[in-house]
């Protein structure tokens, strides 16, 4: 299932504004890659460009290559909708569909493929996805209840279940724990460890400890200067990043001297 992603020389624009410049990195399959950096440095924009979600904003575009399994996501004949079916996303704030039950939320993506699901298959998929998101035991008796009735952390795991129900190649997470309390955060981090064996995971986080705990590789983004585009300062295995970074700016950011 899981695929690696090779990004080369990616420039991301909002209209005429160059937001992120010249990113080149190799994201390993079946590993967690963390993206860190100060606010507004373009790490979320970069994350969104990996499944073309940034194009939701009018005028947004990207130049360069994002290769997944030998296919450039930005080829002219690639449909962004198809890209997003292969590369799922979890957002900063949990966003289950408010009018749907827990059960229907998990199936929402699968139902888009317009294939008729047999009831038994649907039941199996819901159980498998919720188990995969470590949520099954907490909700198995109330699958028909609205997804909004869960706690924030449970909602976020429901969103992860919904994302993995469509069996994507890659899972992108945009600060998935920033709206959660420490206990829920720990639950999500445990989950990320487990999901790693099946999926390629890219996570944006503001929490340095989190990056150190969950990731195998880390990329540090920063602005070149105020008003300049963001860029990738350093990309290295997380261990090296947090003990002996190549770049001075990385070291001062990680040790809390700025940002």
């Amino acid at each position: 299932m899981a695929k690696s992603i090779d990004v080369s020389d990616l420039d991301i624009y909002y209209g005429d504004f160059l937001a992120v410049q010249g990113v080149t990195m190799s994201i390993k399959a079946r590993a967690v890659t963390a993206l860190i950096g100060p606010s507004g440095c373009g790490k979320s924009t970069f994350l969104r460009s990996l499944n073309r979600m940034h194009e939701v904003i009018p005028g947004a575009r990207a130049e360069g290559k994002v290769m997944v399994d030998g296919q450039d996501l930005y080829d002219a004949d690639v449909d962004p909708v198809a890209v997003r079916r292969e590369i799922g996303m979890v957002f900063q704030r949990p966003n289950p569909f408010p009018t749907m039950s827990i059960y229907e939320n998990v199936l929402a993506g699968k139902r888009l493929n317009a294939t008729r699901l047999k009831k038994s298959d649907a039941d199996d998929l819901v159980e498998k996805s919720l188990r995969g998101a470590n949520l099954w035991s907490e909700v198995k008796d109330r699958l028909g209840k609205p997804g909004m009735g869960l706690s924030g952390g449970q909602q976020q795991r429901l969103c992860i279940a919904r994302a993995i129900a469509v069996e994507p190649q890659v899972l992108l997470m945009d600060e998935p724990c920033s709206a959660l309390d420490p206990i829920s955060t720990a639950a999500i981090e445990d989950l990320i460890h487990e999901l790693k064996s099946d999926y390629t995971i890219v996570i944006v986080t503001h929490n340095m400890q989190q990056a150190a705990r969950v990731s195998d590789d880390t990329g540090f983004f920063n602005l070149k200067a105020t008003g300049e585009p963001g860029h990738l300062v350093e990309f290295n295995p997380t261990k090296k990043m947090f003990t002996n970074p190549d770049n001075e700016a990385t070291e001062s950011y990680i040790s809390g001297r700025f940002g």
């Binding site: 499944n51 979600m53 939701v56 909708v81 198809a82 997003r84 079916r85 292969e86 799922g88 996303m89 957002f91 704030r93 966003n95 289950p96 569909f97 408010p98 929402a108 993506g109 888009l112 969103c159 919904r162 994302a163 469509v166």
Partner: peptide
């Protein structure tokens, strides 16, 4: 809410979906 629209789009929904 934008977050609900993004939730749908990130699942691979077309605009109509």
């Amino acid at each position: 809410p934008v977050m609900h629209q993004e939730a749908a789009l990130a699942l691979g929904a077309t605009r109509w979906e």
